Simulated scan of single mutants.
Amino acid sequence: MTHPQWHIAADDRITLSGALDRLTVPDLWSYIQQWAPQSGGMELSLERVDRIDSAGMVLLIHLIEHAKKQNCHIMLSFVPQQLTMLFKLSNAESLLADHIK
C-alpha cells in the first residue's frame, strides 16, 4: 500500500510532500485511515509540503487523533509558517501544542 504524498522514512518517521489542500486531502485521508502505526511515537515531517490550506490543517488534526486511538503520539516537524498561521487563526494552537517540535 503506497501513496505519492505519504513516505515512511523509518519505523518512527513519516514525511508528507506536495500540496495538502482541498484537492489532495480526500484521497490522502482515505489512504491514511488504513495506516496502523508501528510504534508508540512518530515524527511527521512537513519539510516537503509545498502548500497547505485549512483542509490540510484539518487532515493533520484528524491524523493526530487517528494515531492517538492506536496509542501513538505524533510530533510534527518542519511546520510551515503558513500552517502556524492557520493554527492561530483557527484557535487550534491548544489542540496541537503537544504535537509540534
Rank of each mutant, 00 (worst) to 15 (best):
Q70Y: 01
E93L: 11
Q70I: 01
L89K: 05
M1L: 07
P4W: 11
H73P: 01
P80R: 00
I61M: 13
M1W: 01
L59P: 02
K88D: 13
T24M: 10
T84H: 09
S54H: 08
G18C: 07
S45F: 14
F87M: 13
A19R: 15
V49A: 12
E47L: 13
I61K: 06
T2E: 11
T15C: 13
Q34I: 01
L76T: 00
H73G: 04
A36E: 11
S54I: 13
P80T: 00
I14C: 08
P26F: 04
A10W: 01
N91Q: 13
M42C: 09
E93I: 12
L44F: 07
I52G: 10
L59V: 10
L23E: 06
L63A: 09
N91S: 12
T15R: 09
H3V: 01
M57F: 00
M42E: 07
A67N: 05
L44H: 12
N91M: 06
K88G: 01
I14E: 12
L95I: 11
I100F: 04
R48M: 09
F78V: 00
A55F: 01
E65L: 08
E43P: 08
S54D: 11
A19W: 03
T2N: 12
Q82V: 11
F87I: 02
A67Q: 02
M42K: 09
Q5T: 04
Q33P: 03
L59H: 08
D53Y: 07
M1F: 02
Q70K: 05
I61T: 12
D12N: 13
K88F: 04
V49Q: 04
G56D: 13
D50C: 02
D98M: 11
R13G: 00
R22F: 14
G41P: 07
C72W: 10
I8R: 07
A10S: 15
I32L: 06
L86S: 04
P26C: 06
A67C: 07
K68G: 01
R22W: 09
A9L: 14
D27I: 09
D21K: 08
I74S: 10
R13E: 08
L23H: 10
A36H: 09
D27T: 15
Q5S: 15
I52K: 02
E43I: 15
Q82Y: 04
D27K: 07
G41Y: 06
I14K: 06
L89G: 10
M85W: 03
H99Y: 10
A19S: 12
T84L: 14
N91P: 03
A10V: 02
F78L: 01
S39K: 05
P4E: 02
I52V: 15
L20R: 06
I14R: 08
D21M: 12
K88P: 00
I100E: 02
Q82S: 15
I100H: 01
F78A: 07
P26L: 10
A92V: 11
A9Y: 00
L16N: 09
L60R: 11
G56N: 12
S90M: 14
L96S: 10
L28H: 11
R13P: 00
Q82C: 06
T84G: 13
S77K: 05
L96A: 08
D12L: 05
I74F: 13
D27V: 13
R13M: 10
